[in-house]
Amino acid sequence: MTLSIAGVAARPKTATPVQTRKFRLPLRWISPVALVLLWQLASSTGVLSPDKLASPLTVAESAGELIADGQLGEAFAVSITRVLFGFLIGGFAGVVLGLASGLSRWGETLLDPPVQMLRTLPHLGLIPLFILWFGIGEEPKLALVAAGVAFPLYLNLHAGIRQTDPGLVEAARVLGYNRFERIVHVVLPSAVPQTLVGLRIAFGTAWLSLIVAEQINADAGLGFLINNAREFLRTDVVVVGLVVYALLGLTTDALVRLLERRILRWRAR
């Protein structure tokens, strides 16, 4: 929202004599900024103890230090790698299973029931099993991320394929498309919007899974940074870690939206 408002305001065409102010903070920012100021005020006056929550300035300071000494960068790299590999494994499984059950009757008959049953399990509840199966190293972390990614991708890809307009498939049939062409030009493209929704959800659950997984005996990564900080009552470092998690989530969300705009540009009217 704010982006588009800023974009319109920045366009030279809309520049009218009335628009003399160069700097315009969108109104939506008023309350968030006020909250941060209030937070800082509460910390400065001692109402909010640093043991409970560090002040925004301290958090910013610690962030600077963590970046400078490389701790944050290292933790960041470890966590990103976990998400990346977990995402690849889960994404591959979700897409392969989704295609198989979306495109073939037998695939759907055999695959869909168990997947639909398993998806009702909260996947974060699988941690005890994953620890028993995979130990406490990297594997259970990747497995948790993968599980979090595979289900939303499967479900949305499958639903997207099923939602294909039968009228378009019929037309393609009469017009001489072979089966391969019907899949590539009709069925799969019509499943793309729903699949992108799945991709966004998958990224969301990937980060969530990572945060939970990094509570398992992590010796590196953002989760380790946060847990370590907790033991020393460093609420400033905890907040830095949380902010990084949030930024990562925002970044992947923005990436998918960018991808959507690029891939779904045919929707533009």
Partner: peptide, 20 residues
């Protein structure tokens, strides 16, 4: 058909040439 049933994700010219 009554509805044109074009593939919205393929450009106009490809709608015509696909399957040919």
């Amino acid at each position: 058909f009554q509805q044109p049933r074009l593939l919205p994700w393929r450009k106009v010219w490809r709608n015509i040439s696909l399957g040919l």
